[in-house]
Computed example of a mutant assay.
Amino acid sequence: MPFTIATWNINSVRLRIGLVEQFLGAHAPDVLCLQETKTLDDAFPRKALEAAGYAHIAIAGQKGYHGVAIASKHPFKTVERDDWCAMGDARHLRVSFEDDLIVDNFYVPAGGDEPDPAINPKFAHKLKFLRELAQWGDRRRRSDTRAIMVGDLNVAPHEHDVWNHKQLLKIVSHTPVETDLLGQVFAAHDWVDAVRHFVPLRQKLYSWWSYRAADWDAADRGRRLDHVWVTPALKDGLVSTSTLREARGWDRPSDHVPVLVTLER
């Protein structure tokens, strides 16, 4: 039966819970994965999601920073979280379902502004995280694994995942060292890019637009930072994808928009 998963860096779930409710009412994915929730677990707006039909909620929260959550219409079989770079940050959740489908939700470090790990600890942290992620993927390699990996990976890997490839080669999120490392993550588990499966690489596609632009829509200087990947066992079941560009124009929006993928389980 069709199964829809959505990923969205909400940039404060308590501030934007109304937008989450609006999105769920209009699109009703089976599973919603949020990043940058920016709240402790006990302050998470659980009741609003339950009222919207999402009774099963897994949370990895952190006060004021980071944070990921998974809200589902279907019960979880297991819930796990890993500590990346031994920093204790809330950047990952893994859930499984009764049919052994696995969903991993990630919030990769943004990396700051200077793409030099020698002088920028935030960028060094990001590179270490991506290296660990590649090793993690390699450890989990199995040809029959039915897994979906989603999240704000904070890397726009392809030429047309950014508004200007040449200008952004020295900008954090599109530097060669980041795109190469994300490529290693992608290869480590033979992932399939579920969004680019439907949208050709030659076509511009973004999921993030900076708050700094006076008119984000007119400038259209976006990047595709939010991803949905599936293992080869799920590739033939892919049905459709959508990137909800209009959500960037909602009242008091996140700088990211929801990305949805539908597949047959």
Rank of each mutant, 00 (worst) to 15 (best):
R46C: 04
L40E: 15
E36R: 03
V68Q: 05
A90H: 01
W191V: 08
L182F: 15
A118C: 07
R131T: 12
M149K: 06
A90K: 02
P200R: 09
S12M: 04
A110D: 05
T231P: 09
D144M: 07
M1A: 10
E80H: 14
K235R: 15
A218S: 14
K122E: 10
F129E: 06
D83P: 08
G61E: 04
L130C: 06
F129Q: 04
L182C: 10
A124C: 02
L40K: 11
R146Q: 13
V150L: 14
P121G: 03
R94K: 13
A233N: 08
G53R: 07
W84R: 02
G222Q: 10
R202W: 07
S96T: 15
D104H: 10
V230S: 04
E132H: 04
V103M: 09
R245E: 05
T4P: 01
V103D: 11
K235C: 09
R221P: 01
K122N: 08
P45A: 06
F123E: 05
L24S: 11
K77V: 01
L127E: 12
L263P: 04
P157I: 01
M1W: 01
V13W: 02
R146G: 08
G61S: 08
V162G: 03
L169F: 00
D180I: 08
V68C: 07
V150R: 04
H74N: 12
V108H: 01
A26K: 15
Q184W: 06
L260Q: 14
N164V: 08
F129G: 08
H92Q: 13
A118G: 09
C85V: 15
I59Q: 03
F123R: 13
I70L: 03
V230Y: 11
H158A: 14
A26E: 14
L133F: 12
K73E: 06
V199Q: 07
V259S: 00
A156H: 04
E98S: 15
G111I: 00
V185M: 06
D113S: 13
L127A: 09
A69M: 07
H74K: 14
E98Q: 14
F76A: 04
L34W: 07
V31T: 15
L201Y: 12
V228P: 00
G61M: 10
A214N: 08
V192L: 10
K166N: 10
R94T: 12
L24A: 10
T241Q: 12
T39N: 05
K126H: 02
A43Y: 12
G112N: 09
V68A: 01
A110T: 03
I70N: 00
P200E: 11
R248N: 00
W250Y: 07
